[in-house]
Computed example of a mutant assay.
Amino acid sequence: EIPKIIKAVICEDQETSKMALLHICSCLKEARKVFEEIRKYVDANQFFNVLRIYLSGWQGNPKLSDGLLYEGVWDTPKKFAGGSAAQSSIFQSLDILLGVEQSASGESADKFLQEMRTYMPPAHQAFLHNLENCPSLRKFVISSHNADLQEAYNSCVQALVSLRSYHLTIVEKYILTPARDQAKKGNASKESPDSESRGTGGTDLKNFLMAVRNTTQKALLKED
């Protein structure tokens, strides 16, 4: 749908833009429904104490503060981030498409998002770069003065906000609450009290996700 929207913007085709935005909105709502399935199939303590360990990387990890030495590959230790949703080109492409300027989320958040692009396949990185140089959908929607198109745009942004808000809910249940419970039991890391509640990508998880979500919400267009 993204190439279709870009072509529609270039051709000033409001109807095609609207229909494509509504389709993306529908996909985002469906993605949230799928995300909600985690509560049914994944136990929070199992995720935090078992699965999450294998998702963590060597960047921002106090247990490997000097990085990890890949013997026979490099002569010096390397610091790589663990798995992160920010490594998904889907969400970064939606931000670019909708004109959500995540640079406003703060310098550290923007730096992290840019760094996570280096973990994407080269073709995905190239797609994001090309998308950034395409005509602005947001400006097109604003200048159109088309209420239906603006509503479709806002619906798409709101669906992305909703997904990111739910991400925060899941983080609270699957990471922050188990981390607090672990600390109460005296099992928290001696090196860093909050190390267990950081993202597997090495971020200050809750603050990062809140900043990204809030910046997305600010992209909503106000009624004329």
Rank of each mutant, 00 (worst) to 15 (best):
I2K: 05
I2P: 03
P3F: 09
P3M: 05
I6W: 06
K7H: 03
K7M: 04
I10A: 10
Q14C: 05
A20R: 04
A20E: 02
L22Q: 11
I24S: 01
L28P: 11
K29E: 15
E30R: 11
R32T: 10
E36G: 12
E36S: 12
R39Q: 07
Y41E: 12
D43R: 06
F47Q: 07
F47G: 13
L51P: 02
Y54T: 01
S56G: 09
G57V: 02
W58Q: 04
Q59I: 03
N61S: 10
D66L: 03
G67F: 07
Y70T: 14
Y70K: 08
Y70G: 10
E71H: 10
E71W: 05
W74V: 15
W74L: 15
T76L: 10
F80C: 08
A81D: 09
A81C: 12
G82A: 01
G83F: 00
G83W: 00
I90S: 11
S93Q: 03
G106I: 03
E107W: 06
D110F: 15
Y119L: 05
M120L: 12
A123F: 06
F127A: 02
H129L: 15
N133A: 08
P135V: 12
P135M: 10
H145R: 15
L149I: 03
Q150H: 04
E151T: 15
Y153L: 14
Y153E: 07
Q158A: 10
A159V: 09
A159I: 11
A159W: 07
R164V: 10
R164K: 14
L168T: 05
T169N: 13
I170T: 13
E172N: 15
Y174G: 05
A179G: 03
A179E: 02
R180A: 14
K184P: 09
K185C: 11
G186P: 08
A188N: 08
E191M: 11
S195D: 11
E196D: 15
E196L: 12
S197Y: 03
G199Q: 02
G199P: 00
T200V: 02
T200G: 00
G202C: 04
T203P: 04
L209D: 06
M210G: 04
R213L: 09
Q217D: 08
L220W: 04
E223N: 15
E223R: 07
E223W: 06
